[in-house]
Design a binder for these strands. Structure first.
Length: 513
RNA sequence: GCGGGUGUAGCUUAAUGGUAAAGCCCUAGCCUUCCAAGCUAGUUAUGAGGGUUCGAUUCCCUUCACCCGCUCCA
């Protein structure tokens, strides 16, 4: 966790999520899904500008992974190939991955205390003589705490007069005898309810358990399923990576914080296959790479935090390995703490071994030089694209009371939905044809806006709100000497350049970032 | 899923058991030579469903969404 004491008050610029959500809707970044029907909890739609922003982040990730992957520790470019796997896979894949079964948690609620427990974490002391109340406690509770409860509720008997029994083994009909862990009242526990976080549907016309399939809760498994296909078809050699971007679905109990936790979201995952002895080296390598990448697209350095997972929060696949490190971002709703943006996990050989066992397909890699046979270890930088969009917007949101819009989005030009706006100073005279001419030239190279209507101040303000780095304005001087003014978003400063040099100018300016 | 809170136009705020009002925004026109200016006109709302009532945005019920706290987050 971050240390709030390190942050001074003046560092904290309080941006309210309400303002960000309102801006996103007003300017067409992000809308509630099926807005006209009142929305749907946990689902969001990306508007015209949000789609551009998301695509830009997505493309930059793909470029940094697949097109121009980084130079490895040995000075040579690393090798990563792309993949786009189906959202619905054979349900056996999710059994092997541990998502079916392990991913559904039966929960019980206490009607009196309103507390909720995992049913499989509750133990019940059942009186061996069948008399008196049954006493529930949480697995892992201190033994003297349990004894204290027995002394209080056990009618004078010692703990040996009871049989510790998992709640899951107890008939629901007997629940009225049970005192929940934080009350002495009996019968306050509800029936266990399943909270499987995977969406399911049925393949084919008839719905039956045999045809039940799941929407993927992560894109990673699609990569493991195709590990052998890729190996056999693309001449890659360990170490190498397979990258994939796509939607994933989780039926979250509580979608919260705008698009931060939604039920449909987009992931950018890369599985890096390497020799077990080299896993640590590559883990370190990718942690550094990933942090640098987020900063390269405009996430401010102070807002990013690298946090190793504590031992008790590690996922099942990471317990025996080097653990997981999160790249975290200081979201307005987590500040001064941070929230997960990307997890860089050492998954060991868990997934490939699981799929080998369940499918019967050999997942071994045979080193062509040494003939060593082994199942590669996997380092997984798994980033949230949806969360990335939110982080970029939050990071860019800059309050500036001195300008008409009251704020601007300080987007890095590489992610900005619009790289420039071309604005004729007035809608009359000869400004418009010249502006159109410039627009037609620039749109061949960049995503740019031509905006003619209303006075110039309103148009600058609008571009500030959507984070356009440059505005090129055509005025009477343009007609005479073919020059335009450049207005810079962050400084509002203006300079004058030749109209036929605008494209070169943009190229030079964008290089500076 | 539990508890609490909030739902009136794109935004901010009014009002009412009996025609829902305004400012900003937006759109069109005029005017404008650089930062939401001015003039004119215009579009847009009681989250949804049901009940009580002659009549409900207002009272009641249900539901949905959002916010906060639990819980959950492989």
């Amino acid at each position: 966790m971050s240390d709030p004491a390190v942050l001074t008050e003046t560092d904290e610029q309080t941006v309210d999520m309400k303002d960000i959500v309102a801006l996103c809707k007003r300017r067409g970044f992000i809308f509630p899904a099926s807005d006209i029907y009142g929305g749907l909890n946990g689902f969001w739609d990306y508007g015209p500008l949000g789609t551009e922003l998301k695509n830009n982040i997505r493309d930059l990730w793909w470029k940094s992974m697949v097109i121009t992957p980084p130079i490895g520790p040995d000075g040579l470019p690393v090798e990563i190939v792309g993949l786009d796997s189906a959202i619905i896979q054979n349900p056996k894949a999710w059994v092997a991955s541990g998502h079916v079964g392990g991913f559904s948690d039966p929960m019980v609620d206490c009607k009196e205390t309103k507390l909720r427990y995992r049913a499989d974490h509750l133990m019940v002391l059942v009186p061996k003589d069948g008399e008196g109340r049954w006493i529930a406690y949480q697995e892992g509770a201190e033994s003297d705490e349990v004894e204290k409860r027995v002394k209080k509720l056990g009618s004078g008997r010692s703990i040996s007069a009871f049989e510790p029994t998992p709640l899951m083994d107890i008939d629901v009909a007997d629940y009225d005898k049970v005192s929940a862990p934080d009350t002495k009242t009996q019968g306050t526990l509800t029936e266990p309810r399943e909270f499987n976080l995977m969406f399911h549907t049925y393949v084919g016309a008839t719905a039956s358990e045999d045809s039940k399939v799941y929407l993927r809760p992560e894109t990673a498994q699609g990569i493991f399923l195709n590990y052998k296909n890729v190996l056999d078809s693309s001449r890659v050699r360990v170490p190498f990576g397979i990258a994939q971007i796509g939607k994933a679905y989780r039926n979250e109990v509580t979608p919260r914080n705008f698009i931060y936790r939604s039920r449909e979201f987009e992931q950018m995952e890369m599985e890096w296959f390497c020799h077990p002895d080299e896993a640590e080296k590559w883990h370190e390598f990718w942690i550094t790479q990933r942090k640098d990448w987020w900063q390269s697209i405009g996430v401010k350095e102070d807002d990013v935090f690298i946090r190793p997972h504590d031992a008790d929060e590690l996922a099942h696949y990471a317990k025996d390995g080097l653990g997981t490190v999160d790249v975290e971002f200081k979201f307005p709703f987590t500040a001064p703490d941070f929230g997960e943006l990307e997890g860089i996990a050492h998954r060991c050989d868990f997934d490939l071994t699981q799929h080998q066992e369940h499918s019967g397909t050999k997942m071994e890699y045979i080193d062509p030089v040494t003939n060593e046979r082994y199942i590669p270890h996997v380092i997984e930088p798994a980033a949230g694209l949806s969360r990335g969009v939110l982080a970029i917007i939050c990071s860019a949101y800059t309050v500036d009371e001195s300008r008409p819009s009251g704020m601007y989005l300080d987007f890095h030009p590489s992610v900005a939905p619009k790289k420039a706006a071309i604005l004729p100073l007035t809608a009359k005279e000869d400004h418009v044809p010249l502006a159109t001419e410039l627009y037609k030239e620039l749109r061949e190279h960049y995503n740019v806006d031509l905006d003619i209507k209303q006075n110039i101040g309103k148009r600058y303000a609008r571009q500030d709100e959507i984070g356009t780095p440059f505005c090129f304005t055509i005025d009477n001087d343009t007609i005479e000497d073919k020059t335009v003014t450049v207005r810079h978003r962050n400084t509002m400063k203006q300079e004058r350049i030749a109209m036929d040099k605008v494209l070169d100018y943009m190229r030079e300016e964008l290089k500076k970032f």
